[in-house]
Write a protein that binds this DNA or RNA. Structure first.
Length: 489
RNA sequence: GGCGACAUAGCCAAGUGGUAAGGCAGGGGUCUGCAAAACCCCGAUCCCCAGUUCGAAUCUGGGUGUCGCCUCCA
């Protein structure tokens, strides 16, 4: 059984073999923190998160690099508009991303380099390109000469003449070719700068990734990833820069691109008004449900997001965990956390789905079937335990919590807050001061319990109804009554 | 205009030559004071047309439709 992945470079699904046996080098383009992280970021990073988890489960030692491009036009724009320092903008939005990443259970990359920490490396890189005659200086910067690279356009399968015909940006007179792109931008007033042989300025987009890939993974490495909107021009330009300097092809043996996220059938964008900020979304919905939602779709396909789809995912996950939490408890794997290089015992069938270009939807389907079978069977205790352990290992590879997710799926992370009318109503029923809304609700729930205990079902139903109108849903279980806020769709 | 992806039940979605996974919603049932949850059971011949084949959702050709990239973007 071999892992097969779709390679953008060849436009085919190919068997994955790393350059060095047992070791995988992976670079993923991270975010540019010029605005809130959004759902599209989540989808892309979740995709590579599962890839890394699976590679590790297969026994590969993975070096996972995910960068931060913490300097670019939009960051500066934003900072100027707000009258704050550029790095304040970066810290704010990257901080948001870090919190979201943690909630989503994204693995921490092996290295997470920041572009602005790598500028000397970029300057060296650019200097070398100039020496090779592949780059030239102009009044406002240093540009890469596309004409110097005979292979330019091959990753994204672009025809240069057509690209030139479609060029919409006003051609700067000093650029030798409209397709040439900036390696270094000379400073303009009000911009952060770093020193260089071409005067103070800042790096252009693309060069940071070339420099960081090379520094952390070498001239050639196994997998370069990102979302599919980066294929052109970002990755094409990265390839041009790197391969010109190293003289080696290919820079990355596999280029893997995650599909874009659409919202209600349209591309998500700020201007379309369907931008989904991640922090808010994760306040309102369980992060595991977001992961589950994306696991249900092939990572390369465009994914249509809607609130209805997420809500269906919440319900689906809840059902999944009803089964998972019923599994015999026990450690995820016999010997605790997976040591590097240790191979998790995944069921062959489950693994065969992931082998097939990371078919998480198929794998999830298998898991559901297995859980149903587990429910039905469950005779011999030894078998049960072994199967439970195996199923938990599957969850782990997908990055889903091993168990105990029920509480996090029902409890909202939003503050418990009643509006004044409902608060008065409940306080009148409770007939007592409560320190806060949560306690107030609890008191009314207890009154209803008491009514049930004395079989006063009319009163019990009345209290359920009053709470219901305040947006609170009750569940009577063996261990008492649970309540939660119900969010209207 | 150029390049590309996709089109499977009400919705999401897997499946790339041998007679359609899974989830959500819906219906029926068990359980529950009621309700919820949970558990059991129930559903599609795969956008259209023409081909290839013993056999196609799966291959070829032609349509139609949706979306994306070509400019900043995960």
């Amino acid at each position: 059984m071999a892992l097969r992945l779709y390679n953008t470079l060849t436009r085919r699904v190919e068997t994955f073999d790393p350059l060095q046996p047992g070791r995988v080098s992976l670079y993923v383009c991270g975010m540019t923190p010029s605005f809130h992280p959004h759902l599209g970021h989540a989808r892309t990073f979740l995709t590579f998160d599962v890839l890394v988890r699976y590679l590790r489960a297969r026994g590969f030692e993975v070096t996972y690099v995910r960068n931060i491009t913490d300097i670019d036009d939009k960051i500066i724009e934003r900072a100027n508009a707000e009258g704050v320092a550029w790095d304040d903008v970066v810290n704010r939005y990257y901080g948001e991303f870090t919190v979201c990443a943690q909630r989503l259970g994204l693995l921490t990359p092996s290295v997470e380099p920041r572009a602005t920490d790598e500028i000397p490396g970029m300057v060296d890189f650019i200097r070398r390109l100039v020496e090779l005659g592949a780059a030239y200086e102009t009044a406002d910067g240093v540009y890469f000469s596309v004409a110097h690279d005979p292979r330019y356009g091959s990753l994204s399968r672009r025809n240069l003449d057509e690209l030139r015909a479609g060029e919409r940006i006003a051609v700067r007179e000093e650029k030798r070719d409209p397709l040439d792109f900036a390696l270094w931008k000379k400073a303009k007033p009000g911009e952060p700068t770093w020193p260089s042989p071409w005067g103070p300025g800042r790096p252009g987009w693309h060069i940071e990734c070339s420099a960081m890939c090379r520094r952390y993974l070498g001239d050639q490495f196994d997998i370069h990833g990102g979302a599919s909107d980066l294929v052109f021009p970002h990755h094409e330009n990265e390839v041009a820069q790197t391969e010109t300097v190293t003289g080696k092809h290919p820079m990355a043996r596999f280029w893997i691109h995650a599909g874009l996220l659409n919202v209600d059938g349209q591309k998500m964008s700020k201007s379309a008004g369907n931008f989904v900020p991640l922090p808010e979304l994760l306040d309102r919905f369980p992060a595991a449900a977001v992961r589950y939602l994306f696991l249900q779709t092939g990572y390369r396909k465009p994914s249509n997001f809607s609130l209805a789809a997420l809500e269906a995912a919440v319900r689906g996950l809840r059902g999944l965990y009803a089964d998972v939490d019923a599994l015999p408890s026990g450690p995820l794997v016999p010997d605790g956390p997976t040591a590097a290089g240790e191979r998790l015992a995944l069921p062959d069938e489950f693994a065969s789905y992931l082998d097939d270009d990371l078919n998480t939807a198929g794998a999830l389907g298998w898991l559901q079937r297995a859980l149903r079978a587990q429910r039905a069977a469950g005779t011999d205790p030894a078998t049960r335990d072994a199967r439970a352990r195996t199923l938990r290992a599957c969850l782990d590879v997908l990055g889903l919590p091993p168990s105990g997710a029920h509480a996090s799926l029902t409890a909202r992370t939003v503050e418990v807050r009643l509006d004044d009318g409902h608060r008065k109503l409940l306080a009148a029923i409770a007939g007592d001061e409560a320190p806060d809304d949560r306690a107030l609700i609890q008191r009314v729930v207890e009154l209803r319990q008491a009514a049930r205990a004395r079989r006063d079902y009319a009163e019990s139903d009345r209290l359920r109804d009053v709470l219901g109108r305040a947006g609170i849903v009750l569940h009577d279980g063996k261990n008492g009554t649970e309540w939660r806020f119900h969010e209207p769709a």
